[in-house]
Design a protein around this nucleic acid. Structure first.
Length: 650
RNA sequence: GGGCCCGUAGCUCAGCCAGGAUAGAGCGCCGGCCUCCUAAGCCGGUGGUCGGGGGUUCAAAUCCCCCCGGGCCCGCCA
């Protein structure tokens, strides 16, 4: 971090203004600093000012006194302003453009670069994300999870928190056992099969899993007389017909016949689960081997996608290490332990009555559905194996213990709301109040295919690998067109970055509560409102700077940026530290995405009518170059926080 | 049956949590702009009963209630 002479971090002018303004207003109004800060916003029109506060919510009169107080405070702090006025109840502060420009020149000369305003109280944050079952390649649903989770991690890091990113490998569940059964029947391994099919290992496993799962469905449904089962059977058979075309015939037949020959396929799966949980061979090596193979594929895809993890946590390890057993022991000693439907369980309704309802802090941080009774949570199956939720309780505790985390963010689909809540309630019941309160379910809506859901079990999904390849192919065409004679290496590198940028941006920009219908043409549209648009704008700004050469801050004339469009662009770029900080605090990468689009729009509009390198006045030219540098560096940092590579040339 | 989420321009979305200043973008469509810093761009035009109704308020897209439409969840699955 660049520091000033006094050893203090160099603060950008808007972060400083925010600090002074919120302090002044919170003193004046007697309100908590945080509340004031939350309400200080960008005014809807730039004529109003640079920052704005809705005074009328707190005072119906005497607005001039508030303005006078703020003026006095800014004065004391040496912040020059062009105006502090109350207009229609809003207190608007407009900074002195010349001083702003001077500040920027000074900061840039000292090596400062835009970044989120530092968090007042940095903490340790765990972000768990993606955590796809290791039985098929990552599809676009997982990609949304990864894009969100990784952006959150980058944002939180940028804000100054210590972030620990974890992937939970769910190898103990039924689905892994199904895949294992498939490979057992097929008599092959993921590596062998992948080579034969000419695909990544995760794809090979995905195919075996879908075939096996669907075959089991078909066998089960065959015996049924119910009308709806007949329809389901037809659907399963159709899915099998499609799957048949995608892999080696003999392997397909071997699985199909194998499943048909089994007396009780469900019991075969359950048996694998039991033996795997117990850590017995050969199931242990079989299931592990499959999961490892898929993870290899995940890593390859994720690396491409710009996503990395600090730790991979194996669910099986939680079982084998005794951590799950410990949770069950703790449950047995707990006053909330009951027998429910003949199985060991936690009395969730009682936990709610005794630990949630009387505790206002818990109530406000763990909103429960009203009028909906959450049933007791079963911890152990009758056959002694554990349930996913039980293991998740152990994992939740582990995430805090292993990292010393202050808070844990779980990026998990919105369809998991109830189980996530159950885990938190269970933690509360077992005495892990701090953990229960500081674990957050960051939920997001699913990615749908036009007209239907993606279904891994039927092999009906659009894999992230395919989308990236398609995007890359399209990008390569454009890159070649725009850069005649460019090396293949350049085309390759830029196309890949554009592809990743397009996909990641498309997945992060819509609010997470919005279901995304995957329309490839939209994801692959590199026009305005896209990742590539931002990369392009960055490249354009970069190109100007290259042509301009080094900026001489002694020559740069601040007054050249003090008014008009240049001033507006300057202020907009300077908002970045505040915007990024708020996006981090709100866990809202989409807010950063919107901001970057607006900044790029303003830059492009300005670019069109005001030339930099053709500016005749030397002082103005260096000043404008500094402005371009500010915009370029801001876009670069913002894009990086979203995991989109800022390209220098494209 | 109950709970949660979503419904804003032809299409995709922002704004809603923390009510206020002329409801914003993009795509599409129509018309312009490359002897001048990257046209993945820019400028202009087109397009909105903020799902419907009621309420609270000086003020509602935003808060509350009811209704309609869509999705998800209510398992000894994950």
């Amino acid at each position: 971090m660049s520091r000033g002479l006094a050893g203090k971090p160099l603060l950008d002018p808007l972060t400083r203004l925010m600090e002074v303004l919120s302090a002044a207003l919170s003193d004046y109004l007697g309100l908590p600093r945080g509340e004031v800060e939350r309400q200080i916003t960008r005014p809807p029109r730039s004529e109003y000012g640079d920052l704005s506060f809705p005074l009328l919510r707190y005072q119906r009169e005497n607005w001039d006194a508030a303005a006078e107080t703020v003026r006095g405070r800014l004065w004391e702090e040496g912040i020059r302003f062009a105006g502090v006025e109350v207009f229609r109840g809003f207190l608007n502060v407009r900074l002195d453009g010349e001083q702003l420009a001077e500040e920027v020149f000074r900061l840039q000369a000292a090596g400062w670069a835009p970044k989120p305003s530092p968090a007042p109280e940095p903490g340790v944050v765990v972000v768990e994300h993606t955590s796809a079952n290791p039985i098929h390649p990552l599809h676009m649903g997982h990609a949304r999870n990864a894009a969100l989770g990784d952006s959150l991690a980058r944002l939180l890091r940028g804000r100054g928190h210590r972030v620990n990113v974890r992937f939970y490998v769910d190898d103990v569940g039924r689905q892994s056992a199904v895949a294992a059964l498939g490979f057992k029947l097929a008599g092959t391994t993921p590596g062998e099969l992948a080579e034969r099919m000419g695909v990544k290992k995760d794809w090979a496993v995905g195919w075996v899993y879908s075939v096996t799962h669907t075959a089991m469905d078909a066998v089960r449904l065959r015996g049924s007389e119910a009308v709806e089962d007949k329809a389901k059977l037809d659907e399963a058979l159709a899915a099998l017909a499609r799957l048949k075309e995608k892999g080696p015939r003999e392997v397909f037949e071997a699985i199909l016949e194998g499943v048909g020959r089994l007396e009780d396929p469900e019991e075969a799966v359950a048996g694998i689960m039991r033996r795997y949980e117990a850590g017995l061979e050969p199931e242990k090596s079989l299931v592990r081997g499959i999961a490892e193979a898929v993870l290899e594929g995940f890593r390859e895809t994720l690396e491409r996608f710009g996503v990395s993890f600090d730790a991979w946590d194996w669910e099986s390890w939680l079982v084998w290490s005794g951590r799950v057993a410990r949770v069950i022991e703790e449950a047995r000693r707990s006053r909330y332990h009951i027998i429910y439907k003949g199985a060991e369980a936690l009395d969730i309704p009682r936990i709610i009555r005794e630990l949630v309802e009387p505790d206002s802090e818990v109530r406000s941080r763990m909103p429960l559905p009203r009028g909906f009774e959450i049933p007791p949570l079963i911890l152990v199956r009758s056959d002694g194996t554990t349930l996913y939720t039980t293991r998740d309780i152990a994992y939740s505790i582990y995430k805090f213990e292993a990292t010393g985390a202050d808070s844990v963010v779980n990026v998990v689909g919105a369809d998991q709301r109830l189980p996530q809540l159950q885990v938190r309630l269970a933690l509360l019941g077992l005495g892990y109040r701090r953990e229960a309160l500081n674990m957050l379910h960051y939920d997001y809506e699913i990615v749908r295919l036009p007209g239907r859901r993606m279904r891994s079990r039927r092999g009906e999904y659009v894999a992230l690998d395919e989308v990236l390849d398609e995007a890359k192919a399209r990008a390569a065409v454009e890159v070649r067109e725009r850069n005649p004679g460019a090396s293949e290496e350049f085309v390759e590198r830029v196309a890949e970055a554009v592809a990743v940028g397009a996909v990641r941006f498309a997945l992060v920009r819509p609010g997470r509560a919005k279901p995304i219908t995957l329309q490839l043409e939209k994801v692959l549209d590199f026009k305005e409102n896209s990742g590539p648009y931002l990369q392009y704008t960055h490249a354009r700004a970069n190109s100007i700077l290259e042509k301009h050469g080094p900026i001489d801050y002694l020559k740069a004339r601040p007054a050249a940026l003090a008014e008009g469009d240049r001033r507006e662009l300057l202020v907009e770029a300077l908002r970045f530290p505040l915007v990024a900080a708020k996006a981090a605090d709100d866990l809202a990468p989409e807010d950063l995405a919107s901001y970057l689009l607006r900044l790029a729009d303003e830059f492009n509009s300005w670019y069109q009518k005001d030339s930099v390198i053709h500016e005749l006045d030397e002082g103005a030219r260096h000043a404008k170059a500094a402005l371009v540098k500010l915009v370029r560096d801001t876009l670069a940092e913002g894009l990086s926080l979203l995991g989109v590579e800022p390209l220098e040339k494209m």
